[in-house]
Amino acid sequence: MFGQANVLAQGQAEFPPGVGDFYLPSILPWGAENSFWFTKITAMVWIAVGVLIIYFLASYRKPQLVPTKKQWLAESIYGFVRNNIAVDMIGHQGVRFAPYFTTLFCFVLLTNAFAIIPFFQISPNSHIAFPAFLAVISYVLFIWVGIRHHGFGKFFKNSLVPPAPWFILPILIPIEFASTFLFRPFTLAVRLFANMFAGHMILLVFTLGGFAMLNANAWLAPVSVLSWLMTVALTFLEFLVICLQAYVFTVLTASYVQGALADEH
């Protein structure tokens, strides 16, 4: 972001930011033309994983009965996800999934939060690969759980054949198949991706817009301050979107697992 800003300040970069601005320069090998092996996005994902591992390990090093402040915070995060998402959606069987849901929730929340943390200012989830892979994991999870709980045939019969008279079943089965096995991973991935992509794009427009107006002419210069105020306001909105998307992703994964575990509708 800052690179573009001062480039724009000298009046080189064109104002309306495009999709191209999401392809960041590669770090290793430094400055290589469109090699995306190790860019800021990859570095951010590694940082997020590192931070999560270190944080939860450190806060559980010597767990005492009377938790220290650090331990209490980690336990409250886990407790929130376990009670409000796992147990609330899946019932007593949900405790089994609570660790994964907590990791998923914390990872998505942290990677989303990179969108508004200075010096990062872009979320890895604005690249489709990461939400897509998280959606694939959730997809495989709920199918695997369903097959292990019900057995192969019964799971597909249970999820594909609704309780309806036999003669309209041929109409219903394709719809059930499409909405359970095609739309779920697709909507799960695209919802997170679109929110993060749009959030970054909006912040880019208002920030670079301010600089563009600054360079334009004397009349527009004061308006650029308005544009930057808008950026500040949108950053608070973006914070809400970040938390909401992390929560919705985890709740829907829990809902899909619950659907797979359900005995008979």
């Binding site: 609330d88 909405s179 359900a262 008979e264």
Partner: peptide, 23 residues
């Protein structure tokens, strides 16, 4: 919130919409 029970409101809302659009 038991396994036999249908998911909470949010889950149902999305399933209802996905059935309509999917169909």
């Amino acid at each position: 919130g038991g396994p036999g029970d249908s998911p909470s409101g949010a889950g149902q809302g999305w399933t209802a919409l996905s059935y309509l659009i999917g169909g």
